[in-house]
Design a protein around this nucleic acid. Structure first.
Length: 616
DNA sequence: CTAGGGTTAG
């Protein structure tokens, strides 16, 4: 059959339309036309269709494009390259091998770069090595571009020495080379090396700064992250939405509300492009800095387009959960479903946490069941952990233990800690004893559980047993994380450890504490000395309690802020029973709102009451 | 008509 318009194929009226197609059904119609008209046998029309398909958001357009390529009688290199780039591993590499077998097409440097990039997802280096050899043979590796992909490939495989070697041997490096190497070090958790590379760079762009800042955040060095962000501004580099998302995460962790607010203002003022991650980071920052109202205001006023992403929803849900606003969390979740946002596993962690903090045992059970049956999400260990916490904390200790036995996954530290914590709350020393010993035998290095066990013993007066556990802990040679509370005052952070005497105002703080205790006792406060682990006299135990980091921080705040100012404290551990009890009295006696963020959630103390209703 | 680096909720 003769092709009627062989010479004027590019003038065919249908070709002008191909580039304008915007939906999958339209592409399918056009495809049918190409088949009927015979145009599908040429290389350009299917190539154009593939290009259009790859730009469509629909998830089925990628497999469709793949099939179109495989069925094209004369596909071009451009189509191969685009698809090798777009397909997931290992389809990408299979397509690349298919291309190598084709006698008509020779791979170019694009092809090799995309194929090398696919090797990031290989479990072994063999595939990548082979491709490198190939690119050398074809004389393609001389390009900086291909070298940079090789650096990334080695980094993805965790082979930083190899990545470094390629970098060192390059005779020409650009910003991408430096940034890829730094990202490689960050990826394997070696932020120190990343920083060294950063310091050696001849020039830096926003990605260079963001990469190291993100590295600090990932390893939990939030202060270093903030410091580098400050240096970035001094250097005159303009942060973008990536940078700010990361810096906001640092603010959240440091409870740096003032700096977080500054970033929010900066985003508006500098017209930083808002996206779902940045919005979620802002919501998270306000929540984690104790300002749940601002978080909600921001979420409610956010653009609907941004709320088609699950991130802002999850950030808000987690905010409700950590603030103990269980009913609001559940309403939020129901609203989410109404808006057709499909919940994911993160959603359920927050939702179950919210149920746990609100003692909503039945609701929690139902939601847990619905994960698999309605939403098709397999519960993971975190979700099982939430359930153990929910059941145990509400006093269903037996059920919690049975639940652990029936789990399809091996219980981890978090699960045992949740059960032990429940034993402590409900004073079940028999179960606590049994579980504690069980964990002790299988994981002797698990200090968290041993602390809990010692706590269980001492709160029931079994001093000898408590002492034994502590002695064993000493043998393992590691120390428990000390309690630490911090507070932001005029943009400066003040840290307090238990019995800390390092603060410049120590003398005044301790004097203030004595006076505070007198006032609290007059208002009816009785210390909960069962919280003290040590076998010492009652009066001394009271002294130990009075020097808990949280009380030092509150005393410092009361001394240094005007009456009526809310006090925001962040603790690295759970708040202890006595501190909780005392803080309620402090909020009443000193007429202050005190917001304490502990390791798990917030406590809002006001007028003698706490938002957790003494259930935490 | 295609390139390579950085964001990630509990």
């Amino acid at each position: 059959m003769a092709t009627p318009a062989r010479l004027s194929i590019l003038d065919h009226p249908i070709l002008a339309l191909l580039g304008k197609l915007r939906t999958l059904p339209h592409v399918q119609q056009a495809h049918a036309h190409l088949v009927v008209s015979g145009l599908v046998r040429h290389s350009f029309p299917p190539s154009k269709l593939i290009q259009v398909l790859l730009s469509l958001p629909s998830t089925s357009s990628l497999p469709y494009a793949h099939l179109l390529l495989l069925h094209s009688p004369s596909p071009n290199l451009f189509s191969f390259n685009s698809l090798i780039r777009a397909l997931p591993f290992p389809s990408s590499l299979l397509l690349f091998r298919g291309l190598l077998r084709s006698p008509l097409l020779l791979p170019n440097n694009y092809t090799l770069a995309f194929a090398l990039h696919a090797c990031c997802f290989c479990s072994s280096r063999a595939e990548g090595e082979q491709l490198r050899a190939q690119s050398l043979r074809r004389g393609l590796e001389s390009s900086v571009f291909v070298h940079n992909v090789v650096i990334k490939m080695y980094s993805c495989l965790g082979l930083l020495q190899d990545a470094r070697k390629v970098f060192d041997e390059m005779d020409e490096r650009d910003l991408f080379s430096w940034n890829s190497l730094m990202a490689g070090y960050v990826g394997v958790g070696d932020v120190r090396m990343a920083r060294e590379v950063f310091d050696d760079m001849p020039e830096r762009d926003v990605v260079s700064w963001s990469t190291v800042i993100a590295g600090y955040v990932q390893e939990g060095s939030f202060t270093e992250a903030m410091e580098l962000f400050r240096e970035m501004q001094l250097a005159g580099a303009r942060p973008n939405e990536f940078t700010l998302t990361t810096v906001l995460a640092a603010c959240s962790n440091l409870v740096a509300l003032e700096q977080g607010k500054w970033i929010h203002m900066y985003i508006d003022k500098a017209k930083i492009k808002m996206n779902d991650r940045l919005l979620a980071a802002l919501i998270d920052m306000y929540s984690k800095c104790g300002d749940a109202e601002s978080a909600l205001r921001l979420f409610n006023s956010a653009d609907n387009a941004l709320k088609s992403s699950i991130r802002p929803w999850n950030a808000m849900l987690s905010g409700f959960a950590i603030h103990g606003l269980s009913e609001a969390a559940i309403q939020h979740f129901e609203r989410m479903k109404m808006e057709n946002i499909a919940p994911d596993k993160v959603t359920f962690v927050s939702l179950l946490n919210a149920c746990s903090h609100g003692r909503l045992v039945d609701k929690g059970r139902l939601y847990f069941e619905s994960m698999k049956s309605i939403h098709g999400i397999d519960p993971e260990i975190e979700h099982y952990g939430c359930m153990v916490d929910l059941l145990g904390r509400a006093g269903h200790l037996k059920e919690a233990e049975e639940f652990i036995k029936s789990m399809p996954v091996t219980p981890d530290t978090a699960i045992w800690s949740a059960l032990l914590a429940a034993c402590k709350i409900h004073r079940d020393t028999v179960m606590g004893d049994r579980i504690g010993k069980l964990v002790n035998n299988s994981e002797p290095e698990n200090l968290g559980c041993q602390v809990l066990l010692a706590n269980i013993y001492s709160s029931s007066g079994r001093w000898v047993d408590a002492k034994d556990v502590r002695k064993n802990m000493g043998i393992t040679g590691r120390r428990k994380t000390p309690g630490c509370s911090s507070i932001e005052l005029d943009g400066m952070f003040h840290q307090f450890f238990v019995g800390d005497r390092s603060h410049p105002q120590t003398k005044q703080i301790y004097l203030f504490l004595e006076e505070m205790y007198t006032k609290l006792k007059m208002a009816g406060y009785v210390p909960e000395i069962g919280e003290v682990l040590l076998d010492i006299d009652g009066e001394d135990r009271e002294t130990v309690l009075s020097r808990h980091s949280e009380k030092l921080a509150i005393a410092f705040a009361l001394m240094n802020t005007p009456p009526g100012t809310p006090i925001r404290i962040v603790k690295n551990l759970r708040v202890c029973g006595d501190c909780h009890h005392a803080t309620k009295f402090i909020s009443k006696v000193y007429e202050r709102v005190i917001i304490v963020r502990d390791r798990i959630r917030f406590h809002h103390f006001e007028d003698g009451f706490c938002s957790c209703k003494d259930y935490w």
